[in-house]
Design a protein around this nucleic acid. Sequence first.
DNA 1: CTTGAAAAGAACTGCCT
DNA 2: AGGCAGTTCTTTTCAAG
Lengths: 148, 148
Amino acid sequence: MDDLDRAILKVVQANASLSAGAVGRAVGLSQAAAWRRLDRLRKAGILAGRELSLDLERLGFGVTVFLGVKLATRGRVDLEGFERAVSAIPEVRRVEHVLGRYDYRLRVVARDLADFERVLRRRIMGLPGVGEVEANVLLSEERRPGPL
Amino acid sequence: MDDLDRAILKVVQANASLSAGAVGRAVGLSQAAAWRRLDRLRKAGILAGRELSLDLERLGFGVTVFLGVKLATRGRVDLEGFERAVSAIPEVRRVEHVLGRYDYRLRVVARDLADFERVLRRRIMGLPGVGEVEANVLLSEERRPGPL
DNA sequence: CTTGAAAAGAACTGCCT
DNA sequence: AGGCAGTTCTTTTCAAG
């Protein structure tokens, strides 16, 4: 983990579709040297994997809502039951178990607000142990490269 | 946008590093046909791009905190000033502009809770227009494939 | 949509400094 | 560790059925 590795991580964060040769050119290494470092970072688990980002709006899912969920009852059983049930809802794209005002934060997509209401009432509110629920509708978001 | 396209999107969601040939085998198309469909999905903006997922824990950032931020004052100027200032903080990995109890939700990483306290007190609380702030510490999270 | 083929480029390997 | 050179595999494009 030296400065060259950090430079490589910066480059691939900015553009995940770069070849080893292109990464090498960007940081001043040969294709083979850059590839070996990328390989090492992958095997160390630091480069965890690629993800494809779908444009959900173009697929007809124009609404994203964050739900803060507080469970009415707690305990190991409740957490597991809630997580299993919430994972079966296709509109739920992310389940975050958190500490604070809520127990879970869910990222939910829907075609529109009417569709979201359906998901909320028929799927989310019926989950086992759900207590208080709070919604925040996403207006826009920005991803940032992060610290390094 | 037919069933084959949807099947392709499912496959590449599950594994973003698949070659066009491998995608074709998975959905019952030839290499060339699968490539043409992937190309079309990319050009239509539905496949928006790849992202690399870094393992921030292995890089020494063991703490992730979600911050709900309510601005003390509002208006176009306040939003823009806040967004510009918050984007300059390297520990902020995501800025979500939302409607609801908060105006913004921030995803913040730090080396540990002491480091997070430093970021919160010296960086976040000093942002222009910041009013109420609420923190939720991430315990675990799960990404789900999403609806299709 | 399929097959086959060809050119370009990327991934991987071994050897040498 | 880094560079060079070579092999293999993918990507990408094209022609033809």
